[in-house]
Design a protein around this nucleic acid. Structure first.
Lengths: 158, 158
DNA sequence: AAATATGGTTACACTCAATAATGATTATTA
DNA sequence: TAATAATCATTATTGAGTGTAACCATATTT
């Protein structure tokens, strides 16, 4: 047994380590992601949006008229899963869903004035909480981090 | 007819962009994480482990005798959720679960020889696939990335 | 015109993770 | 010491989040 907890050394909290996992990029990535996701969730509490809904709303704001299936591609989720998100945003009158006149199978999604205002406010809150969560990094380091992450997202060099 | 790049129409579905979301660290973080998680999932396919189980097994290998509740803390999940993971690892005889003689409420988790061998093999596979996924980054950049991520994980500077 | 493909929707299943309740054991305290 | 509280592992239940399959309406292709 490698653990020797006698009365002299009662239960050190640090006697277990994840040093072996630190060699895995995905491990560090996930743990940092959890921190940022929680920060965003907290920031969005007031607006009643989830991170998922906020992202969808933001993409609709900056891409007026976008079709649901296109949006699903951008979010990397299935169309069927987007339906509920859109339903919620529409019920709250943050977006409108109108038929695309050129292709009546499609909907054209646009943010309402209310939706644009809420998105703007929520975005500011998320930005602020993200800044706090990443406050150990300078602005330059944060920019560097994002660029590194985007190069990973671009896939293998091959 | 849906894609007309010849500046005919101002708002075509094809030119949708997520540029507005790129200002959010959490957005880039999540997308990079998805890439790495998929890489790890693929690498672990052969071993029959999920990313979750692999992480648990790895931590048990490097912390022989660790208690389930301590492990749950390290994995940042509830004890109750760890039970199923441990059950699976024990059923496959990758770990053993023995009572801690000093505190009979606790279990002491240790990897079997078989578990250590599988972990070693799986770790190599994950490392290889992670390296491929991050191949657009040099070794120095990868190390830098990890250090930036860990500083985020450390929380706000305050 | 008929067959095929695409877009949105619904229903279902599965994974992941949190919560609450329970039984066993240990620690505290009256 | 006896009674009470706290801790550990477990089970059951629940709720997100996401994928798959089937369906209907509309477009496209043959």
């Amino acid at each position: 047994m490698t653990q020797n907890k006698t009365a002299d050394e009662p239960e050190l909290p640090g006697d277990a380590s994840d040093l072996g996992m630190r060699g895995f990029l995905g491990y560090s990535l996930k743990r940092a992601y959890i921190v940022l996701h929680q920060a965003a969730t907290g920031a969005l509490d007031e607006s009643g949006l989830k991170v998922r809904s906020f992202t969808a709303l933001s993409l609709i704001v900056s891409n007026p008229g976008v079709a649901p299936s296109r949006l699903a591609d951008m979010l990397r989720i299935e169309r069927s899963n987007l339906v509920l998100i859109i339903d919620e945003l529409e019920t709250r009158e943050l977006i409108s869903r109108t038929r695309d006149p050129h292709d009546r199978r499609r909907f054209a999604l646009s943010a309402t004035l209310r939706g644009r205002r809420l998105q703007e406010k929520a975005a500011a809150a998320v930005k602020a909480d993200e800044a706090r969560a990443a406050s150990r990094l300078s602005a330059e380091e944060q920019a560097l981090l994002v660029s590194l992450l985007e190069r990973i997202e671009d896939g293998p060099a091959d």
